[in-house]
Design a protein around this nucleic acid. Structure first.
Lengths: 125, 125
DNA sequence: CAGTATCCTATTCGATACTG
DNA sequence: CAGTATCGAATAGGATACTG
């Protein structure tokens, strides 16, 4: 299968799928949460401490969405005070690899992108 | 390098980079434009025809951002009526592979995600 | 043809306060 | 501890009209 055919995954019928995924992982905190949960289970407060800047509200909303998508599992222990633990589901773990691919691209090309932006902006001034 | 170390690409200092990238490709039309330009150069109107639902405004804004990032090049021919052609830069072409990786993940797991969502929603009713 | 400008709506997100 | 509710600011995005 050529790369050009594969590109249809983004453009074609599956394109709606890709948009649906990007609507999720494109959300500010989602990918960060998945990466933070990689290889361990954490409580709500622990997650919040590992992810600087996330508000209770956004952490809650993002976790609920990830749970609904079946990427993260939520385990509430019947204790006082309450204890809730989050971890990646098997499907959630499969997202790690593509996420890393994207991250490596980002890390590799970011310097060039920033140079391009700077050049563009000085031209436009 | 272990996958756990690589995950730091998402969480660590490079994490800001990843967010910067996601702020771009996470934008509704960006990835679609890149995929549409894969292997060919197209004019503004042609792009609009290939990407159903995109408004002039969003196509323009997205192209300007991609151009600023150095992922797309814009060539204006000095003619009447004006003719402007867009194509991927070499760096823009390197984005195709990671995008496909993500798209393949999306295509493969979307059925399971939709089942999970349906199950979650009926539970919550 | 290839845009930009303007207006308006919807969604996202942060801050704060409150609860089982 | 682990959230939800509410409010307001910022941003994204669509529709329409106008221009070099």
């Amino acid at each position: 299968m050529s790369q050009n055919e594969k590109t249809c995954l983004i453009r074609g019928d599956a394109g709606r799928t890709v948009r649906a995924i990007l609507d999720r992982i494109g959300s500010r905190w989602t990918l960060l949460i998945v990466a933070t949960l990689h290889g361990r289970r954490l409580r709500f407060t622990e997650l919040q401490q590992h992810i600087p800047g996330v508000s209770q509200r956004m952490l809650s909303l993002s976790l609920r969405r990830l749970e609904r998508d079946g990427l993260v599992s939520r385990t509430a222990h019947a204790e006082v005070p309450p204890r809730v633990e989050y971890e990646l589901t098997p499907m959630g773990q499969t997202l790690i690899a593509p996420a890393i691919t994207l991250a490596e691209w980002a890390a590799e090309h970011n310097p060039a992108i920033e140079r391009s932006q700077a050049a563009y902006d000085t031209r436009e001034d």
